[in-house]
């Protein structure tokens, strides 16, 4: 199952993308397609990724690809996978869906729940940039606590996003008893690609939730997307884990968490925070990790 970086194909199945520089989503999609290869049928909902790759008469995607409605990614790729079986297509073809966080944990959750419960043979990758970035940075169900977005603006009566914890897609999927679900980060490409590779070789509904920072929405230098994603994990504000054979597992646990401000101070969306906010976010982090440690251990 190990991915050997030296043996990865040079061939790109995603290039010429019109995303912002430093886009985490593009990085995740590119890495996933390197692992899955050209025997892939892809679909995306209306989102940043679709809008920057798939506008007639051009395409930046070199596998079969379709855009579907915002709430409908999981049901659309389910239909594709089921039809492929009905039509007798080769079994090694991967049916891949890539959707953002809003398209997954909010408006797309019902369809994904249905696909997970039916255990249709798909890989669903949620690329999480913590807001509705295609429409200009509105909060979603996984926006970080106290983050500024255009619908959680800061002001005398607001310190940004009010929800203390991100909706846990990983655990929601585990509760469906899917054969495989995982979290990942673009800062850990080998871990991410190995998870994609593993998903490829398991039959049924596989869901990977990958953290993909957004320089435009988060307000940081596009050169430091990977560093930002890495700090999220090192500060304990994101985590790498897997659920397989009905068991949870952490893939990486920092020996000691870095102070959260190392991550937060990089980003304009957190610039209204002060020392007491950092400590509060740290306390929330510890609550979340204690809960997960109990559950996943």
């Amino acid at each position: 199952m190990a991915v050997n970086l030296k043996n990865l194909p040079d061939e790109e199945l995603l290039y010429g993308v019109k995303t912002c520089q430093g886009c985490g989503v593009t990085l995740a999609a590119r890495l996933a397609l390197k692992v899955l290869g050209e025997r892939t049928c892809l679909a995306t909902p209306a989102c940043c990724f679709a809008a920057t790759t798939t506008v007639y008469p051009q395409s930046s995607i070199f596998v079969n690809n379709a855009i579907t409605a915002f709430p409908a990614l999981a049901s659309t790729i389910s239909g594709m996978a089921v039809a492929a079986e009905a039509l007798g297509w080769d079994e090694d073809i991967t049916f891949l869906g890539i959707a953002g966080d809003g398209g997954t944990v909010d408006i797309g959750l019902q369809a994904l729940s249905g696909a997970a419960e039916r255990n249709d043979n798909i890989i669903y990758i949620c690329v999480d940039n913590e807001a509705y970035m295609n429409t200009g940075n509105q909060r979603s169900g996984v926006t970080s606590y106290k983050a500024w977005t255009t619908t959680t603006p800061t002001g005398p009566c607001s310190k940004g996003e009010k929800n203390r914890f991100k909706k846990s897609l990983f655990e929601i999927m585990a509760a469906h008893r899917v054969p495989y679900t995982a979290t990942a980060s673009v800062a850990y490409p080998k871990d991410f690609m190995e998870k994609v590779e593993k998903a490829k070789n398991i039959k049924g509904c596989k869901v990977i939730h990958v953290m993909t920072p957004c320089p435009t929405g988060w307000g940081y230098d596009p050169a430091v997307t990977v560093r930002t994603a890495k700090l999220a994990v090192e500060c304990g504000l994101w985590y790498l884990a897997e659920f397989e054979n009905n068991e949870f597992k952490f893939n990486f646990v920092p020996k000691e968490f870095k102070p959260v401000e190392e991550y937060l101070k990089l980003q304009r969306r957190f610039r209204h925070l002060d020392e007491s906010d950092y400590r509060e976010i740290e306390a929330n982090r510890d609550i979340e990790w204690n809960r997960m440690r109990k559950r996943f251990a």
Partner: peptide
Amino acid sequence: DFKYMMVESEHSAMASALGASLMGART
């Protein structure tokens, strides 16, 4: 002997029909 998808909503019924049709299936 066709495939019968028992989906969780009408929205998904039509979306999965679309997905199937995109593969060239009669749906």
